[in-house]
Design a protein around this nucleic acid. Sequence first.
DNA 1: TTGCGTGCAAAGGTTTTGCATGGCA
DNA 2: TGCCATGCAAAACCTTTGCACGCAA
Lengths: 141, 141
Amino acid sequence: MARFYNTRQGALVLEVLRENGSRPRTAEDLMKSLKGRGEKVGKTTLYRQLNKLGKQGKLRVTMGPGGTGYQYVEDPVACAAHMHCRCCRCGKLFHVDCSMLRQLSRHLLSAHAFVLDPVDTVLQGTCKKCEEEDGDGAAEA
Amino acid sequence: MARFYNTRQGALVLEVLRENGSRPRTAEDLMKSLKGRGEKVGKTTLYRQLNKLGKQGKLRVTMGPGGTGYQYVEDPVACAAHMHCRCCRCGKLFHVDCSMLRQLSRHLLSAHAFVLDPVDTVLQGTCKKCEEEDGDGAAEA
DNA sequence: TTGCGTGCAAAGGTTTTGCATGGCA
DNA sequence: TGCCATGCAAAACCTTTGCACGCAA
């Protein structure tokens, strides 16, 4: 197994990802954040760093409208113990720590012969805030 | 609002989608199916038909490893009443009609201020069959 | 010194768009 | 007849790959 070097760029990518802990960011977003702090990281490097984190199970990749979202997984073990809810409007991802997950998981297994993977499952919906703000014609793209 | 014409190609796309009701297919798959039955439909047309179905809420688009999957939604109302579970191994999508959905939905709303959208939510996991067959070293990426 | 990491440029695959023609109503 | 649908080719888009150089250990 290859050992990993600690590089300036690797640390930067991690930093930018951590800053946006609660929200999946697109590759483009991350590039902008990196540029925004005056640091230069090539997009090749960004993708390779993301790839590396993915292999370590430290990255959640959420695909959906708005593109592919990359998000740092601080603690993979903890993330297996709760659900993830993503708001279609604001793009924020909520960690919902809830006893219902166990129920759901157990029920799917026993009644529907399905082994749920909570880390990669993302419940889609709308958060209350966006739901309320959406009284007007804010029909997002 | 534009009215829709019934065209040979449109009907064909629908037919091919219906044939694969239980499994999301990639654009490439669909092209192959169309060719396989000797009918010729341009890929532009395929994408435009899919787009049209999407606007009508008749298409579920599941993105994940293996590409973008397109799947016909026979009855959007019925699909709002049950959950969808996708097996990461075989790609099959199960409709799980389950009272737990109501509980989950209600709980998310009241306790976590989140409005669940069951049509677009796809639970990730592994179906029992694949789980059992996977005794060998099929360590997915 | 070793060999992983970097970054540019170019390739790769998927989806969208421009434009002239075809076909449904 | 009017207007949407079609299909080719090319563009746009996002991500990966090839290759030479840089840098951490």
